[in-house]
Nucleic acid binder design. Structure first.
Length: 924
RNA sequence: GCGGAUGUGGUGAAAUUGGUAGACACGCUAGACUUAGGAUCUAGUGCCGUGAGGUGUGUGGGUUCGAGUCCCUCCAUCCGCACCA
């Protein structure tokens, strides 16, 4: 009987299922290993061949660790809240939960076919109330905490209230956005609403009027990482800035720790760098400038306090709160007009408009705190309200934008750099000696910065500070299909629902659209539709997509705990994720938010580790090959690729199932869509229609999606698993191409023949293994172990192939050898190996109860070696010599060879390098 | 502009500490078997050259007995960030 993968795979999948082979529990006697995949959003399109790449890799490593004796946690679940199901609900009226469940079912079927060793008893779904109960609970903890900058950790808000009662907020060092300074006495006079308003400015999750990314098309706000080039990440709709009352997460409080702790993670430099970039730390100094005829000073942040004597003007962001108050009468209209124009610009406009210089003089002045000079105040949209203080001291001689601005508006440019010409451009490098700068004269940049900060602090004009680009993350969405907040309002004061009333379940609504008044869909729910209702109303927003995914790796440890989000005992045992595999696109979203939540939960002692993912591998994207047909403009005629020259044609994506080797199946194409049924074609001379091709991301809309299903049908899951690993290094992106899959399939068939005869009966024998057989086996063990330990999954497949080629040549049917080999191969081809393991006579259960073979060096000891003999570093011939020879003996031996004499060609070698066991190099 | 990554046959790729470049596979060529083949087997296959041989890891340089690997320069592609004060 030939290798019948369909029968075998079905058999073992059901065996594993009915025996619960992959169920795991905490076992203190074993070392744990936690392998995690980024869980998928179950989309309607199902899995394509790109998804399993990471899943196969993690499955191989999970099975390997299991065979090595680790207690392996390898779970899977679904990130099941999300926009597509909701969009579909809006169109059809079907509840998103129904769509979601259907999609999950399809995903599960596809995952099952691939033979993964997930413990499905641990499955989680972020949209299930059992799960989001705890997402809501974590929200409550964040709400109930603030960040103490002295202890550098999150503390309970009750401690802060006690502090306020004791001595007001003057000496409180906590991350906040509170501008009010109050004493304990003043605090005691505040009413409940005022107190809560102040507390909101300290809580780790807070409600605030802030500038948010509003996406009118999606009808919701978006976090910064969800906006790409001024458009929404999902759907690519325009995004604008809008001031709205929204929930935000005070991730800023953790900026320094999120930055510092990156150093200890085994992640790629690229991802770490992206996070560093996103956090954007800059060290500098805040300086306050008194405004002429105005009570409050303007604060600026600068990284170059050394250039303070080069300040020629001041620029405020158009949104800066002082603008209108300080603007002179004469400038008022122009300023208003400028503000209006700026507010209309989307973030994208502002970005694409970098070259145009614009601004408006307010007519007001600040007083230079050191020189006493009067300095004009401008507004300009190159200054961002959300970074630093929303105001800059402009130093045109040292900053190119300030320089350009000054030139454009004809403002004086002071040169404070000695012997440096600034007539053409600013001197932006951090070097040079200062002049015309009072006490800084003659100093270089670094000491000048230090001295400037010192003097500014001494005079109470400024203070050394650190700024982060990282902004607090907007946490509410005006959407239906997300976690409801455990929040209600009483007299407009937000309050959290008590624990025993959690979860707040999603109420039924009559439509998934916003209300007439523009309120989120949840505002449609009747009071009775809520499973719990308090106060005047419940919160109408829902949580963003990243809420559920920020802590899911913890829930897998204890998925059905009804009293805690995870028990301390279990999280202590499983600890952080040892190996996390997923796409690099989550660099500044999920991977940052998860770290933030983990640190918070650590601060509150709910878990005992402060980073979620120790080792991260970013699998590359598998790209699709799209095919194109070319339609003649304004017609229903399609021109073959070879004939489009000089014609006005438009490329149109065509379903890749209608194309083979770039040749279009014309009949199929006509049937594909009704408007093509009477299309006409301009063909190649041989009568074929040739399509164009391009490598692109796989997507439904490009008709280039390859599902694993067909391939599993044709070759089996084991072949697909091996093939996806064989394609190349896991981190690398590559176009999908099934060309090579037959090679991998043939390998399995060839391997099968080592174990069974044509009738499918085992042909293994119990003889003593030969020296050669042992050598092949142990060489293979060594290589596979080393490769798996460095996550080099592609090279293992070649190693298996080499081993099978050698065993075949050796006519090896040895039981000990081939059984050991099965264990090596099993992580890659589990069904195949289980079957042969059973056929070999191992009746007792699964191969995965076995233990991984141990490499024994003694089988690899050689007594001779094919020495490459090179001349001037170029290999010329090889000679087999004993490894027992030392340097001198080797050299003598080589010198006496006929071939050596030939290549020497009568010359005397200058030098002979002899590396025993490696090489001989003769220098002429 | 800044930062990160990657450049090796017709293709996917290998080469862990500097030591035989192209393992393993696909494809291709020739042959065997076959009614036929998109099945199987055998041999060949970096490029130039009939050959001896030459040449070859994006470019140019350097270190070294020896460089795909280390250092410098430039180029190309991909990804991220970008008026960040």
């Amino acid at each position: 009987m030939e290798y019948n993968f369909r029968e075998i795979e079905a058999k073992w999948i059901s065996f594993w299922k009915s025996n619960k082979s992959y169920k795991v529990s905490e076992d203190p006697s074993k070392k744990k290993y936690y392998v995690l995949d980024m869980f998928p959003y179950p989309s309607g399109a199902g899995l394509h061949v790109g998804h399993p790449l990471g899943y196969i890799a993690s499955d191989v490593l999970a099975r390997y660790k299991k065979l090595e004796g680790f207690n392996v946690l390898h779970p899977m679940g679904y990130d099941s809240f999300g926009l597509p199901a909701e969009q579909y609900a809006i169109q059809t009226g079907q509840h998103p939960a129904i769509t979601t469940n259907k999609n999950i079912e399809r995903y599960r079927n596809q995952l099952d076919q691939l033979g993964f060793c997930y413990d499905w008893d641990r499955e989680i779904r972020t949209s299930s109330p059992d799960y989001y109960k705890w997402t809501q609970w974590i929200f409550k903890q964040l709400f109930d905490c603030y960040y103490d900058e002295k202890l550098n950790k999150a503390l309970r808000i009750s401690a802060l209230i006690a502090e306020f009662e004791r001595s007001g907020n003057q000496d409180v060092q906590a991350t906040n956005h509170c501008e009010l300074v109050f004493s304990s006495q003043e605090w005691s006079t505040f009413d409940t609403a005022k107190k809560e308003a102040v507390l909101q400015q300290y809580r780790l999750v807070y409600l605030a009027d802030s500038w948010v990314n509003w996406c009118p098309e999606l009808g919701t706000v978006l976090a910064n990482d969800e906006v790409v080039n001024g458009k929404s990440e999902r759907g690519s709709h325009p995004v604008m800035q809008k001031k709205m009352r929204q929930w935000s997460m005070r991730i800023k409080a953790y900026a320094e720790r999120l930055l510092k702790d990156l150093d200890h993670l085994d992640w790629t430099d690229s991802i770490k760098e992206q996070q560093r970039n996103w956090i954007g730390k800059s060290v500098g100094c805040s300086v306050s400038f008194e405004v002429e005829n105005y009570s409050a000073p303007i604060e600026v942040f600068t990284t170059r306090p050394d250039t303070i004597f080069g300040v020629s003007f001041m620029v405020l962001a158009p949104e800066h709160p002082f603008v209108l108050e300080i603007t002179t009468k004469e400038n008022r209209d122009a300023v208003l007009a400028y503000q209006k124009a700026a507010s209309k610009k989307t973030e994208r406009d502002r970005q694409s408009d970098v070259k145009t210089i614009s601004g408006q003089n307010t007519g007001a002045f600040v007083i230079h705190p050191l020189s006493g000079e009067k300095i004009q105040i401008w507004i300009a949209d190159y200054v961002l309200a959300s970074y630093g203080t929303g105001a800059v001291m402009a130093v045109p001689c040292g900053d190119q934008r300030d320089f350009d601005f000054a030139k454009h508006f004809d403002i004086e440019i002071k040169n404070i750099f000695d012997h440096i010409d600034i007539s053409e451009q600013a001197h932006t490098e951090k070097n040079g000696t200062l002049k015309d700068s009072d006490f800084l004269n003659g100093l270089e940049v670094a000491p000048a910065i230090k001295k400037a900060i010192g003097v500014l602090e001494e005079k109470s004009i400024g203070q050394g500070t650190t700024n982060y680009r990282l902004r607090d993350a907007v946490f509410s969405r005006q959407r239906y299909w997300g976690e409801p907040f455990p929040v209600y309002y009483k007299e407009n004061i937000p309050k959290t629902v008590s624990d025993e009333n959690l979860p707040i379940e999603l109420p039924e609504v009559d439509s998934y659209l916003p209300t007439q008044q523009g309120e989120p869909p949840l505002a449609r729910a009747e009071k009775e539709s809520w499973n719990h209702f308090s106060g005047d109303r419940m919160e109408y927003n829902t949580m963003p997509g990243w809420a559920g995914s920020s802590w899911y790796f913890l829930r897998y440890m204890d998925p059905s705990n009804e009293t805690e989000f995870v028990s301390k005992e279990k999280s202590d045992y499983w600890n952080k994720v040892d190996l996390y595999i997923g796409g690099a696109e989550h660099a500044t979203g999920h991977l940052l938010y998860s770290r933030f939540w983990t640190k918070f939960l650590y601060d509150q002692d709910y878990i005992s580790f402060d980073e979620p993912f120790q080792k991260l591998i970013n699998q590359g994207m598998i790209l699709g090959k799209s095919s194109f047909v070319y339609r003649l403009a304004d017609s229903n005629t399609f021109v073959s690729k070879g004939k489009i020259q000089g014609k006005d044609t438009q490329p149109i994506h065509v379903d890749i199932s209608l194309v083979e080797n770039n040749k279009l199946n014309i009949e199929g194409f006509k049937k594909w869509r009704s408007d093509y049924s009477n299309a006409s074609f301009l063909l190649e001379d041989n009568g074929d229609y040739l399509c164009g091709a391009e490598v692109e991301k796989m997507s439904k809309s490009k008709f280039n999606v390859q599902t694993p299903d067909d391939l599993i049908q044709k070759y089996g899951a084991d072949t697909l698993r091996l093939y996806e690993m064989f394609l190349g290094p896991i981190e690398q992106s590559k176009p999908w191409d099934t060309k090579g899959i037959s090679g991998v399939h043939n390998f399995l068939r060839k391997c099968w023949r080592l174990y069974c005869n044509a009738e499918g009966v085992s042909i293994l024998n119990g003889n003593d293994p030969t020296k050669d057989e042992l050598k092949t086996l142990h060489k293979t063990i060594k290589r596979i172990r080393e490769d798996l330990d460095r996550y080099s999954l592609n090279t293992c497949v070649s190693t298996f192939m080499i081993a099978v080629n050698e065993f075949t040549e050796q006519k090896c049917n040895n039981r000990d050898i081939l059984e050991a080999f099965l264990i090596l191969l099993a992580p890659y081809a589990p069904h195949f190996c289980e079957e042969l393991w059973m056929k070999a006579g191992q009746k007792e259960g699964s191969l995965f109860e076995a233990s991984y073979p141990i490499y024994d060096e003694k089988h690899l000891v050689e007594d001779s070696f094919d020495y490459p003999i090179s001349f001037n570093g170029k290999m010329r011939f090889k000679v087999n010599l004993s490894l027992s020879l030392d340097r001198q003996a080797l050299q003598k031996e080589v010198e006496s060879l006929e071939q050596t004499k030939k290549w020497l060609d009568g010359k005397t070698p200058k030098k002979i390098i002899v590396v025993p066991g490696k090489i001989v190099n003769i220098v002429l």
